[in-house]
């Protein structure tokens, strides 16, 4: 019996130099010639969940207090909870050491397979973004982490800004899995002038530890 391998919606042309198999995903930890950033990291293999409840205040997914206001996010214990609206929250497990299992409670759906997920981190991240979206990431009134649900390269996305601090700026972006090919192409194209390169998961893990 052949080993079954899962396929990410994100494909980079760069050459992987370090990989790791996790839950049948072949996760690239490092690519050759990653450069000095900014970086684009594939996180599509990280578990993501949808939680819907008319009384979200009563829910504590993974022990996290869900923010009350839509658009506000919380990053705790490696889990990012993004309040989407009055009844819905999206949960991203960004902790590479933990394969979070979906709580066996009503209201949860595993949506890992529904979306592609990438992190865009490092310097000039928002200069790249403004070539693709009219969303205002640098609005001084928004404190990271915060969630945008809007078009990015014309595609509806969830975008969570985790840092707006110069060289350690960064965000996590998800959109329908099917858009993976074209979304990656448009981000890399927009980032060409800023020397955006694909990077392995290590780059993201180290970055998020700095936050």
């Amino acid at each position: 019996m052949k080993e079954i391998q899962r396929v990410s919606p994100v494909v980079f042309k760069s050459t992987p130099v370090k990989t790791k198999t996790r839950d049948n995903w072949e996760v690239v930890m490092e690519y050759s010639e990653e450069g000095d950033g900014p970086f684009l990291v594939d996180l599509s293999h990280r578990p993501r969940f949808d939680l819907q409840d008319s009384n979200l205040a009563a829910q504590k997914p993974f022990g996290i207090e869900i923010p009350e206001t839509p658009g506000i996010c919380v990053l705790e214990k490696g889990v990012l909870a993004n309040r989407m609206n009055g009844t819905q929250v999206s949960l991203y497990n960004l902790d590479s050491d933990d394969t979070a299992v979906m709580p066996d409670e009503s209201g949860y759906t595993d949506v890992t397979e529904s979306t592609m997920c990438v992190a865009l981190i490092g310097k000039n991240v928002f200069s790249i973004c403004e070539k693709l979206t009219a969303l205002d990431f640098m609005d001084p009134q928004r404190k990271a982490p915060f969630l945008f649900q809007g078009p990015f390269s014309h595609v509806p996305c969830q975008i969570v800004t985790l840092s707006k601090e110069g060289d350690i700026s960064g965000l996590v972006l998800t959109c329908s899995r099917g858009y993976g090919r074209d979304m990656i192409h448009s981000i890399l194209h927009a980032g060409e002038e800023f020397k955006l390169t694909p990077a392995g998961e290590n780059r993201f893990t180290n970055w998020i530890k700095e936050l």
């Binding site: 949808d50 819907q52 409840d53 009503s106 209201g107 759906t109 949506v111 397979e113 529904s114 979306t115 329908s176 899995r177 099917g178």
Partner: peptide, 9 residues
């Protein structure tokens, strides 16, 4: 709860 799984499967 209503979830769009179009791309999921």
């Amino acid at each position: 709860a209503l979830v769009n799984l179009t791309d999921s499967l």
